[in-house]
C-alpha cells in the first residue's frame, strides 16, 4: 500500500501498521522534495519547512478532497516527519561541531541561513517529549502548528476542537514549553 489517500483511510480505521507507513511515505516525500528543489531552483531562494509540507500534500494528495479527519492524519504524519528531519539534522550538525565524523548526507547540502540554533531545537524536542506525556492532545497541537505550519483554524479542524480552544491550548503549550526550557 503506498497511496497516501488509501493509507489515510487505513489510519482512520485504526489499522496498526498504517500510521507508520504513512509517516514513512510522507518522510520520503519531504526529503525527495527538498532535494529536488535544491537541484532545480534559483540560488538564494529560501524554503520553509512548512512550505515543504504543504507542497508534499499537493503532490501526494493532489486535488482530491479527503475527509478532514484524514487530512489531520496526513498533517500529523507530516509534522512528525518534519520534526524527525530537523532534529536529525541538528543532532548531526552538533556531532560534527564536536569533532564527530564527517558524513555526507543529502540534507547537509541545505544550509540554515537564519540559524534557529540547533541546541535550542534539540532542547525543545526534549521538552516536547515530556509535554507529550503530560498533555498529549496539546503536544499534538504543538507539532501540527510548529512543524507542519498549520494555522489555528486548521489545527482546530484537525483536532476537532473549537478555534478558541485551539488558541487557549496553543498559549498554554507555548508557556509550558518555555517554562520547561527556562528551567533547563
Amino acid at each position: 500500500m503506498s497511496d497516501a489517500t488509501l493509507l489515510m483511510g487505513a489510519v482512520d480505521r485504526g489499522e496498526p501498521e498504517a500510521a507508520e507507513q504513512l509517516l514513512d511515505l510522507v518522510y520520503a516525500e519531504l526529503r525527495g522534495l527538498a532535494a529536488s528543489k535544491m537541484a532545480r531552483d534559483v540560488p538564494g531562494q529560501t524554503l520553509q519547512p512548512t512550505a515543504l509540507v504543504h507542497e508534499a500534500w499537493l503532490r501526494l494528495i493532489g486535488d482530491r478532497h479527503p475527509k478532514f479527519k484524514n487530512r489531520a492524519h496526513f498533517f500529523r504524519a507530516a509534522a512528525e516527519a518534519m520534526r524527525h528531519i530537523l532534529i536529525d539534522r541538528a543532532r548531526r550538525k552538533r556531532t560534527q561541531r564536536h569533532g564527530g565524523g564527517y558524513e555526507r548526507v543529502d540534507w547537509d547540502d541545505l544550509e540554515v541561513v537564519v540559524d534557529a540554533s540547533d541546541d535550542r531545537l534539540l532542547a525543545l524536542d526534549e521538552a516536547l517529549e515530556k509535554f507529550v506525556r503530560e498533555h498529549p492532545v496539546q503536544a499534538d497541537l504543538v507539532k501540527l502548528r510548529y512543524f507542519a505550519g498549520m494555522t489555528n483554524e486548521e489545527v482546530a479542524d484537525a483536532l476537532d476542537i473549537s478555534v478558541s480552544t485551539a488558541k487557549n491550548y496553543w498559549t498554554f503549550s507555548r508557556t509550558w514549553l518555555l517554562n520547561e526550557l527556562e528551567r533547563g
Binding site: T46, Q48, A116, G149, F172
Partner: peptide, 24 residues
Amino acid sequence: ALLATHHRLGDFLEQPPAEIARGR
C-alpha cells in the same frame, strides 16, 4: 510559574523552526 513565564512569551514558537536555503 506559568503565569510568570507567560509575560516573557513574546513570539516563542510562533516562527517556523528554520528557513532552509539551497546550498551552492
